[in-house]
Amino acid sequence: MPTVSMTVNGKKVSGTVEPRTLLVQFLRETLGLTGTHVGCDTSQCGACVVDIDGDSVKSCTILAVQCEGANVTTIEGLANGSELHPMQEAFREHHGLQCGFCTPGMIMSAVDLVKKNPNPTEQEIRHWLEGNLCRCTGYHNIVKAIEAGAKAMGARK
């Protein structure tokens, strides 16, 4: 079986995987990083979104072996010790979640949006979240949280 090496949340990691192992399986089962969720497992819901080399990607739709040498950030890699990332803090402050299952993917997508578009409008936020589904339909507070998180990320710079 091939060995795959990548950087996850700043740490170099490697593991022996079958070629058919998905990145999300490698993260959850090999590395024990269970913050990245498997929702639909059909590339639609976005609960599994992680950052790969600067772009948000659905980790259920990429093989671990395709990520050889990549730099991956998961929800576990956002906080600075006990200090939440401004987007995480904004989700908490604005109650941008109901059951919380979609939240890791929502936050990872939101951070990528703000990186590319530091002052998104409400419409741009909703458009960007097309690939992130909330089965509780809690979108209003998610959008409010991202608006606030974007401001907080801007202020931190």
């Binding site: 976005g46 790969i52 772009d55 948000s56 990607v57 659905k58 739709t61 990528d112 097309e130 690939g131």
Partner: peptide, 9 residues
Amino acid sequence: IGDPAVRHR
């Protein structure tokens, strides 16, 4: 096409 994460791949 698709959504942002799909367009990234």
